[in-house]
């Protein structure tokens, strides 16, 4: 079995365990490359079907390309799309200019996610985070419980051994499940290349710039790049020395911002 097959199979096992263990499972789809790869793995795990709702947290500040890509894939892959927004915070004008990054991400992403979980009764979520993205995400488990207040008890995480994962949550808790944890940025691109997956155009260079990590438009900076195809991105990453999230403003406000965001329930 080749290397990408090994990664894929590990992910599929985790996805199927999640589906078996939880009654109301959903997948969080940011439309970025990772969660799109995750969505394709869900299709493979369930033999072409996506049997769970696909949740998109819409902050209202996303790139227009994201919405176009989302709607196309929803049609092509026959997805049960659920769009969630923190309507109150958006009406009150919350945005990257109004609050700190910590406040804005918490209101428009974490709180919107909280509302969606409550409204839809989800007890578990699949998320496309990876260990190599950030030192804090490197500490994550495949099955990672969140308490009622969405807090992540990173000081006391469940043991994971021999593909046995924590199978249940207490009342009010939900489980975050991370099937791509063992993949690197390069693995994701190699997998997307091998599987010829559709990827939103923002990742590909136009006029000497491309996005390496995408979120909300005001808080993402493109990197200098001539890579206009998946092959060229792979070649670029093989020699790159900057980190993937170098263009993400939320990481920069404070050295421990990611830890704080995630402890509060951020993805």
């Amino acid at each position: 079995m080749d290397y990408l097959d090994q990664l894929e199979n590990r992910s599929i096992f985790v996805i199927r365990e999640a589906f078996h263990r939880f009654k109301r499972l959903a997948i969080l789809w940011s439309i970025g490359k990772d969660s799109t790869v995750l969505l394709s793995l869900v299709r493979r795990a369930f033999f072409g079907k996506v049997p769970i709702p696909v949740l998109h947290i819409d902050t209202g500040y996303k790139f227009s390309e994201i919405y176009e890509f989302r709607d196309r894939i929803v049609r092509e892959w026959n997805l049960d799309l659920v769009v969630a927004s923190n309507v109150e915070a958006r009406a009150a004008g919350m945005g990257p200019k109004k609050g700190t990054k910590l406040e804005c991400c918490t209101a428009l992403k974490t709180d919107a996610l909280k509302q969606a979980i409550r409204n839809h009764g989800f007890d578990a979520l699949l998320l496309g985070i990876r260990r190599d993205e950030h030192g804090i995400r490197a500490k994550e488990r495949y099955f990672s419980p969140r308490d009622q207040g969405f807090r992540w008890n990173y000081q006391n995480q469940p043991m994971e051994l021999w593909r046995q994962y924590k199978a249940r949550t207490d009342e009010g808790q939900h489980m975050r499940i991370h099937p791509l944890l063992h993949m690197t940025e390069l693995d994701v691109w190699r997998y997307a290349h091998r599987e010829k997956l559709p990827i939103v155009s923002l990742y590909f260079a136009r006029n000497g710039k491309r996005y390496r990590s995408i979120g909300c438009e005001p808080c993402c900076s493109p990197v200098e790049s001539e890579a206009a195809t998946v092959e060229e991105i792979i070649e670029e990453l093989m020699v790159s020395t900057t980190s993937e999230r170098a263009g993400r403003a939320q990481d920069k406000e404070d050295a421990y911002n990611m830890q704080k965001l995630r402890a509060l329930g951020y993805m």
Partner: peptide
């Protein structure tokens, strides 16, 4: 480089397992 948690850096010890490529 390995100990990313604030508690780990300030306490000078690793609390949880981490992975680096």
């Amino acid at each position: 480089l390995m100990d990313s948690l604030q508690e780990e850096r300030e306490g000078g010890l690793t609390i949880d397992t981490t992975q680096v490529f």
